[in-house]
Write a protein that binds this DNA or RNA. Sequence first.
DNA 1: GGCGAGATTGACTCGCCAGTCAATCTGGGA
DNA 2: TCCCAGATTGACTGGCGAGTCAATCTCGCC
Lengths: 203, 203
Amino acid sequence: MATRNPRQAAEKRRQILDAAVVVFARQGFHTCRVSDIADEAGVAYGLVYHYFRSKDEVLDTLFLERWDVLLAAIREVDADASLAARDKLRAIASFIVESYRHDPDLMKVIIVEVTRAANSFGRRHLAKIREAYDLIAEIVAKAQASGEFSGAVTPAFAALAFYGAIEQVLTGWIFDLLPGAPEDYDQAKDFVVETICGGLDAA
Amino acid sequence: MATRNPRQAAEKRRQILDAAVVVFARQGFHTCRVSDIADEAGVAYGLVYHYFRSKDEVLDTLFLERWDVLLAAIREVDADASLAARDKLRAIASFIVESYRHDPDLMKVIIVEVTRAANSFGRRHLAKIREAYDLIAEIVAKAQASGEFSGAVTPAFAALAFYGAIEQVLTGWIFDLLPGAPEDYDQAKDFVVETICGGLDAA
DNA sequence: GGCGAGATTGACTCGCCAGTCAATCTGGGA
DNA sequence: TCCCAGATTGACTGGCGAGTCAATCTCGCC
């Protein structure tokens, strides 16, 4: 075989994906040109099309890669029977916030260009996004059955409110609507859980 | 003056705006062509540019018109000293849900194309959108000062969670993630307030 | 009845950029 | 050393659609 080391090919592909994250985060998916990605990656224009069928596929890849990690994390949390529902939600909130802390550009791209892009990409990945809602709803449903949560609200609704609150906070950080210092990250995890589980009402 | 009845000009303009709502809701802002708007309005292509400087300005106009109504509604609710904070939030949730019931296409366009379009239009109108968050945060802050709400969470955070929950529910209706029958609309108002104020925890 | 300001028309221009492709390079195997 | 599959290059094309503009129409006024 005359194929170059397949490791190197994978690295080039990765290099393009990483460059895409930077460019998408900086300029937005629709505003940037494919040549911007190639330039950022230090690679010729055409090579992007050697590794990906289209500009769309680059973003799809970034999203699916990361979202599958998120889904796996939620499933793992849910499987831990020793955790109360409140702690499970805490763990999920924590995972998402830590994802943002670890790679804010990637999370920005996923939220801004996919999750919140209800037309273009959000619509295409609706089923995938919905999986996360459903998993969270399942946790709520079990907690309601066991009496840990009240049954005043449907699980589907609770899941939407929970996920919506987290996403809104990340969006707040992304667009400087909310202070985003390191200590705010940890506080946010508590705030989300406290608000959704405990409510705003005085005790 | 040789100007045609200014009433008729205003009506033509309105006609174009209404057509734009239909087209944007159906096809999305980026996917539709200006000629689609003109066709839907039963008007020549060029006339759109007689009344609006650009395609963007059409959407800007739709958003600002409606958002100002929302801001006015929130201010009015807030000004009513006889209302508890919980009731104020209930009234705001109700107003938004009723807006959706009354004109789902318009609300879809505003949410999908502006409010959640964090890059393009969402960014342009960030300050305007933020006004709503700030108004809600103010209500929370006063309730915390009076002891109605606990101080466990910052007002800015509570406002984001509250607004995020409502928007997520509307998004759920828009994309059929959540049942959207008439009775669900009224239930949703209670759910949002119940979740944010009362929390999921069993009493 | 005829004038003219503004309304209305729609064919056309023009820039942009995703995607193509033929040419060139490179490195591992024989 | 030579060969060639696959990697890499970047100039080029093709289509699309926003915005322009000169021509035409319409209606209120004198």
